[in-house]
Every structure is written in structure tokens, then in C-alpha cells.
Amino acid sequence: MEHVMRVSETLKSFRETRLAALRPPSEFFDYQRISRPADFNQVTQRITYNTRYYSGNYVLIIALLAVYALITNPLLIIALGFLVGGFTAINRFAPEPVQMGEHTITQKHLYAALFVIGLPLLYIASPVSTFFWLVGASGVVILGHAAIVEPGIESEYAAVEDTV
């Protein structure tokens, strides 16, 4: 029950902090504000401002890309489900050693069997390449958007507020 409360509080704080910063799609996809930056200095300024201003939208993009990466790699879902389900099952159903014939099976034996099966399965599912794909795809989408969208009028006031 305590875990449910903790997850509930985490989701509530996430919603209050990140999702409150979501900008409407009409503002995020405003094609009239798209322009080619004049130089690298302007690219840097745009990326700096837009990553803060659209942070909620960018977190949503990363989450959607992560879901896409998991959907397109079903073996990774199976491997993660096997490992997480195995840990949960061992902790819930086998807290005490079990006697089977002449052998005593402890949690240590069950964890070893879980790792012997689960880690090669996880290796075959290539989570590292999925992670790097997620980092690369997110970087291209987010930095590309942040570099080509001109900051609004409010960005001028943000610069004034930072100096005060």
C-alpha cells in the first residue's frame, strides 16, 4: 500500500511540475515562427530559451519516443517483464526456503536462476542500442525544433527578468 501512495505522490508532483509547463499545440507547432537562424550564436540562444520554455512538451516527446521504442522491440518488453515479474514473484511467493526432496531452494538460488535466464535474454533484446536510439532521436527532434523556432516576444522580457 505504501508503494501505491509513493507512486501516486510521484505522479502528482510530475504532473504539477512538468505537465503544468506544457504549451498548447498551436503554440508548439506554430509554423509562422519557424525561421533559419542567422548564425551559431542565434542557434545557441534559441536552444537555450526554447528548451526551458517548451520543457514540458519535450518531456512528452521523449516519453512518446520511449513508448515507440518499446513497442517496436517486443523482446525487450518480454525481457524486462520477465526480470521484473521474476523479482516480484520471488519476493512475494518465496520469502522462505522451500524443501523439494533432498534439495533446499532458497531465494538466492531463485535469483541466480532468474539472472541465468534473464540476463542473456536482456542482452539479446539490446537495451543499450534502444537507449542510444532514444537519446539520438530525442536530441535530433528537440534540438532541431528548438533551433528553428523563433522565441516569442516574452523571451525579451525573460532576459530582462534574469538581469534584475
Rank of each mutant, 00 (worst) to 15 (best):
S35D: 07
E16S: 15
R36A: 06
L75K: 05
I77D: 01
R33S: 00
L64N: 01
Q32A: 10
T88N: 08
S26W: 03
A125E: 03
A112Q: 12
A20V: 14
G86L: 00
V67Q: 05
F131L: 13
S126G: 05
I34C: 04
E102V: 13
Q99W: 05
Y49A: 03
M5S: 11
A94I: 13
G139N: 15
L110A: 13
V98M: 11
Y54A: 03
E161P: 13
V59P: 08
I34H: 04
F132Q: 05
F115I: 14
P95F: 08
L114G: 04
I148V: 15
R23D: 00
G136R: 11
I142P: 02
G136L: 02
V116I: 14
P25I: 08
L75A: 04
F93N: 13
I61W: 06
H145S: 03
E161D: 13
E150H: 12
E16V: 14
G81F: 06
S138H: 15
L114H: 05
Q45L: 06
P151D: 04
F14L: 03
I71F: 03
A112V: 15
V128D: 04
T163C: 06
E150D: 12
E9D: 01
L114I: 07
A21V: 03
E161W: 13
R33T: 00
E96N: 15
I47Y: 01
A137D: 02
Y111R: 14
I148S: 07
P25K: 10
M5G: 12
F115N: 10
A79H: 01
I148A: 06
V84D: 05
S126W: 07
V98D: 08
L83E: 02
I142K: 00
L60R: 03
P74S: 00
G101V: 03
S129I: 05
I47D: 01
E16W: 12
R52C: 08
S126Y: 06
